[in-house]
Every structure is written in structure tokens, then in C-alpha cells.
Amino acid sequence: MQVSVSLTVNGKAVTAAVEPRTLLVQLLREHLELTGTHVGCDTSQCGACVVHVDGASAKSCTLLAVQCDGTSITTIEGLAKDGVLHPMQEAFREHHGLQCGFCTPGMVMSAVDLLQHNAKPSETEIREWLEGNICRCTGYHNIVKAVQHAAQQMGG
């Protein structure tokens, strides 16, 4: 049985017919073809699937699309404006805050949420915040540097 969900994704109104068991990440990747959001562990641990739901970061593999009816979702595709990378994306590029890149969308979305709470995080606070994002390449050193750089660029 399918149900209708209406939500805003990266500023655009979207209505889709989904099964109640459809995960938010399935809606994004398979229905809307927004494949920037990754599925890594699929068990709520790795954070590759992090998106923002009404501004707050969440793991889209652990949310049903129907739970997000009426919400506003931002994915990695929604960060750049008019072809200009978001300062966090730019900082990851500048500091090579990635190796294979699989965890990167989730890292960036999580880090953007961090700066919404704490504009000038310490290294420890960055590492603690990224507890729910796992980089199997262990590229944390440059990821943390990138987040610190983005915080400076964004005026924190």
C-alpha cells in the first residue's frame, strides 16, 4: 500500500507515493535521484546518510519517509548556491578532508549542523560532534582541519 508524502527537498516542493516502510534515504536516492546522500552501514552508525530535517542533522537510513511528511530536508546537493560551494564544502576541498570520499556527504552535513550550534568549536568538540560519522579511511585529521577552517571562514 502506498501513501503520499509531501515535503520540501533543497527548497523544492516534492510529493511522492511511497510505502510506509520506505526510508527517507530511499526516497532521496531512488525516487528523487539525489544520490549524493550515501548509505554506508545502513545500521545508524556510520553517518554517511546524514541530511538535515528542519535544520537538524539526522540519519536518513533511520527515518521513514512518512515521518518526514511536511518537513524541509536539505541534502548535500542543497548546500552549494548558484554553483558556489558552501564554505564547509570548500574547506573540505581546500584541506583534502577526504580520501575515498564515501563518508564526505555525511561529514559535511554533520559539520554544518555543528557550526549552527557552536560557531567556534574546539578540536575536541569537533571530534566529539563527529562521533556519529565514521571515515573508514581514517582521514579524521584533515576532516577536523577542514571543519576548523570552515568555522573561521564562516566568522566563528
Binding site: 553517518g47 546524514v50 542533522s57 562521533e131 556519529g132
Partner: peptide
């Protein structure tokens, strides 16, 4: 948990 779990 982690920040994303705490948000939900």
C-alpha cells in the same frame, strides 16, 4: 548516542 540520534 551521537548528535543525529539525539536529534531524533
Amino acid at each position: 548516542g551521537d548528535p543525529q540520534v539525539r536529534n531524533r
